[in-house]
């Protein structure tokens, strides 16, 4: 018997169609990502119905490429893993339908994967995850701190009360006249400016692990509009630097608070905004105060949505006996459970 466990993984929760083949949960044999960014740029953000339509165009081509690049046959596969939530329901349905069809046709176990578990497991491609661990998950749709007591258990200890950090980046980018998505542009610009505006740091003093970014967003927009009205030109670099400093301060502050309360072996940084250099640099510095905690950052090329991370999380779920039947449905508002006693 071969020792290889190959998982064919699907991800289609937002605007990336992705199919990957992952060996033993830790080695990427292929990770095909078809991104729709150029399409949604036309509309200044992701249009769900357009996203779903693109997924259908791409799905079998991605499966084909993923198997070909991995040099894998269906008979080599051990299971099929798929993101079933959270995300855009129409987009999720395409991946779920395709994964079920492949699993059924080849008699393979079907593993349902929470997209956020996928983001966390992107870090698995750097090093094995050691438990207990904490994960700071920051993306366009989510901002949360998750406690991982043991393998395949995920418990939220704090999350954003309003906008996700990535969402705030995109809105601020629009005000600065940047094209969608603007996270990378703001990050680059921020490195050339200074924090001169001193935007608010929401909920900094509150004794919890929750975030809020809507106040920051409003303060930013008001500052720019006010300057427009009095025909004053503000430094875009300083605006970007000030905005980013506030976001990074809030994220770092709550993460440190969590590290003080939860004795963990690792801190995992994951999600689309985990590619932000300002945030990565800041956590490197802050973690010096916690020598017993290893910082595990998702690789830059796996911070965005991709099926490799779903394959890694799916491998762990498979090991723990998780599988779904052919009636698996998409769950657009799927969430981890909360840490006992810490419900929102």
């Amino acid at each position: 018997m071969s020792k290889r466990t190959l998982i064919l993984a699907f991800e289609s929760s937002c605007d990336e169609t992705s199919v990957a083949v992952i060996e033993n949960g830790s080695k990427i044999l292929s990770n095909v990502v078809a991104t729709q960014i150029n399409s949604h740029k036309r509309f200044g953000g992701v249009v769900p119905e357009v996203a779903s339509r693109h997924h259908i165009e791409q799905i079998t081509g991605c499966i084909d490429d993923a198997l070909r690049i991995a040099k894998a046959q269906y008979s080599d596969l051990s299971a099929v893993a798929v993101t079933y939530g959270p995300g855009l329901v129409g987009a999720l349905l395409v991946g779920v339908a395709a994964a079920k069809a492949v699993a059924f046709a080849h008699n393979l176990p079907l593993i349902p994967v929470n997209h956020m578990a996928g983001h966390i497991y992107a870090a698995r491609f750097v090093a094995p995850i050691e438990f207990p661990a904490l994960a700071l998950l920051v993306s366009g749709g989510h901002t949360e701190i998750v406690y991982l007591p043991t393998e395949n258990e995920f418990q939220i200890i704090g999350e954003t009360r309003d906008d996700a950090a990535g969402e705030a980046y995109d809105k601020v980018g629009r005000v600065l006249g940047m094209t969608y998505p603007s996270g990378k542009q703001i990050d680059d610009l921020a490195h050339t400016g200074q924090d001169t505006f001193n935007f608010p740091r929401a909920m900094e003093k509150e004794n919890n692990f929750d975030f809020s970014f809507s106040g920051l967003k409003s303060a930013f927009i008001n500052t720019v509009h006010h300057a427009d009205q009095i025909k004053e030109t503000l430094s875009k670099a300083d605006l970007a630097a000030s905005f980013q400093q506030s976001v990074v301060d809030v994220l770092a502050n709550k993460t440190i608070r969590a590290l003080k309360q939860f004795k963990v072996k690792q801190l995992i940084l994951a999600g689309g905004v985990a590619a932000n250099n300002g945030l990565r640099e800041r956590l490197d510095i802050e973690l010096k105060a916690f020598p017993e905690v290893k910082l595990l950052k998702a690789p830059l090329n796996l911070c965005g949505d991709n099926a490799a991370m779903i394959g890694a999380a799916g491998y762990v779920a498979l090991k723990n006996g998780i599988h779904a039947d052919l009636d698996l449905n998409a769950d657009p508002s799927l969430e981890f459970e909360w840490y006992p006693g810490m419900e929102k």
Partner: peptide, 19 residues
């Protein structure tokens, strides 16, 4: 219905493709 078509067409094309 867009949702209905998505499910039927994705399932049919993936089945045909995979077998």
């Amino acid at each position: 219905s867009y949702t209905g078509l998505r499910i039927g067409v994705t399932t049919a094309k993936t089945l045909a493709f995979t077998i």
